[in-house]
Structures are given as C-alpha cells and as structure tokens.
Design a protein around this nucleic acid. Sequence first.
DNA 1: GTCTATATCCAGATAGAC
DNA 2: GTCTATCTGGATATAGAC
Lengths: 201, 201
Amino acid sequence: MARNKELNQKIKDERREQILSSALMLFATKGLSATRITDISAAAGISQGLMYHYCKSKEEIFSELIKYALDRMNAACIELEKLPLPPHQKIKMAIEKLLQGFDANKNTSYYYLLILQATVSEAIPREAKEIISQGSSLPYEVIERILIEGQKEGTIKDYDARDLSVVFWTSIKGLALNKAAFGGSYKMPDPRILAGIFLNE
Amino acid sequence: MARNKELNQKIKDERREQILSSALMLFATKGLSATRITDISAAAGISQGLMYHYCKSKEEIFSELIKYALDRMNAACIELEKLPLPPHQKIKMAIEKLLQGFDANKNTSYYYLLILQATVSEAIPREAKEIISQGSSLPYEVIERILIEGQKEGTIKDYDARDLSVVFWTSIKGLALNKAAFGGSYKMPDPRILAGIFLNE
DNA sequence: GTCTATATCCAGATAGAC
DNA sequence: GTCTATCTGGATATAGAC
C-alpha cells in the first residue's frame, strides 16, 4: 500500500520534471503563446489529456519555471556577496562563472529568454508578472554594492555604480540571448573583455 | 478621377503606416503569436475585417517590419564604415549614436525585440526567418573590420576581434532590450563605459 | 472603403473508458 | 494513471450589405 503510494509519487515527480524540462525548451524557442499544450505533452511523451493531471495550465508551468530561475539566480548572488574575496575578484569570478554556465548548458540561456519574455510581454499570466516584479532587482543591487565597495578601494572604475551594474547585467543578458539564438555553434568570448569594463588595471 | 485615385492611394498608404506602427508595438510587447489581428485593427482604429484589405496576414506585417529594421541597420553600418574618421572614433560614435537612439525613441528598442523574436523563435513565418538569416551578419562584420583596423593602429584593445564584435553587439542589444522592458523610467548609461571595452586609453 | 455578420478552424479543457 | 473522444471558446478569414 505505502509502497504503491511512494512509487506513484515517484512516477508523478519524474513526469513533472519531464514536463518542466520540455516546457522550458519550448517556451524559450516559441514563446508562451505559440507553445501549445500538445507540444509539451508530445515532447514529454504523454497524451494531451494527461497533461491536466500534472498541471492546471501551461501558464502555471511558465510561472513555475520563472520562479525557479529567479530563486536560483538570487541565491547565487547572495552567495557571491558573502564570499571572502575582495570586490574586484568577486566581479571577475561572477563573469567567469556566468560565461562558463552559458557554454556548459544551453538550458541556462533558455532561462534568460523566459525571464525576458516575462519582463517584456503583456501576454503573460499575472502570477508570473508578480514573481518577476518582486524578484528581479536583487542581482542589480548586489552587483551595485560590490562595485561601490571596489570603488572605495580604487579597484573598480569610477563611473556611476548604478550604470555599471546595469551594463554588467545587460551585457550578460545579451550574451545569454546570443547563446540561446545561435546555440552550439557559438562560443563565449574571453571573460577578461567584460571584466575590463569594470576593473582598473 | 485621377484625383480620387491619388487620394485613395494616400489614404491607403497612411492606413498601412498606422497598421505597421501599431503592429510593431504589439508584436514587441506581446509576441507575434499572442497578438491577435483584432488587437492590431483596434490599435489602428479600424475594423477587423478591413485589415484584410491592407495585408494578407499578421505574419506578412511581421516580415515587413523585420525587413525594414534590418535594412535600416545595415544601411547605417555601411554609412559608418565609410565615414572619414579613424577607427576608434567610429566605434565611439557608433556607441553614442546607438544609445542616443534608444533614449530618444522607444520604437528603436522595439525593433530589437522583434529581431530577437525572429532569430530565436521557431514560431515565426519562414519568410521572416529567411530575411533574418540573410541580413543579420553585416553589422558584426562591419564592426569587426573597424576593430581590426584600430588594432593595427594600436587604438583598439588586442583581444580577438570577432569576440570584441560579438561583445559590442550583445551589449548594445542587452541595453536595447532593457529599454524595451523598463521604458521611460530607464536612462542609458554613460557611453564611455561601453567605449572602454574596446579603446586603449 | 468600410462595416457587421458568419463560417471555419484549431487549441484548451473535460468526460468517460480501460 | 493513462488514453481517446468530445465539448467549448476564441481567433482567423470570408461574405455580403452600405
């Protein structure tokens, strides 16, 4: 009895994983609206009707993916800030890790595409919009704080820290979207190019 | 008689302008698929049925907007390359002009959103895909050539020129998308921040 | 040229059998 | 838990009146 329940739960969890993973790819490459529920079910290898045992709608899946992406990004930023390193090293490391992540795993760049859609699009469930509007400012704040610290030490260039933080993230996002667009054929540039935007030599 | 024909043509042209302009905003903020033909007709102030006198489908409008954006961008790049200026000045000027353009006119950043959609999405008419795949490499090539020239003169940093060109455009695109996402509230950063990526001091 | 009304089609969601 | 069949709604596209 208990055995069966456990097994069923396991199957259910695995299917849900499968669904989320398929949906990520489809949402990223077609957008929420153009992705049909049957696209997701086909990619996950189940019938269309069965989808409704695992989720209420594709909007729900979309929101869940957004939440997951934001949570991970924010957690990583908090970790970064806590590291026992001088600020300019934190910036260097962040850039290296982010670019490596894009090269290693295309899903990473797909998440950026999802976040962009959710930020920019009016055709997105209210829930996803709320998750975004509440959870997307932390990375900017963290980088800004680190840059200000570095400016005090004289290791970071003396432009407006808010501007620098915006350039940091828009450049990263630009590269992520390029990766999502051109995929395997495209390799990330030398991270020192980006680091040079911020660091005094 | 001839008068009427001229007048009719003029009305027709104006309407078409209206439709294209409304469609740009809607495609950028909702995506092609989520934009209904009635959204466009309502924004242009005409009935849904009348749309079919001015275009075959929303896909056709989308392709036309993509073509227009690419043509203008490519023409601007060719102009830039021809200017009688040293390479590092061309880079500086390109960055300044691009950022000014984003601040001056939100439509500019909307075009970037359209290009991104057309590049990344599978749910895009074949025609738009073809336009993109044929017409989107020139800006990268032009910037790469200018950078190589500057490297010979010692005014441009000595990283791989292809990498630098990719960073140039991905950073610009990142800023454009940020503008599209956050709109009026967001002001472009100091162009010297970006220029510093490329220029030897 | 412009509108309203209608037909067609397709995706989302539900119901019922296994 | 899983499928197939069906209902429903909404968007596209067309037809016909003014």
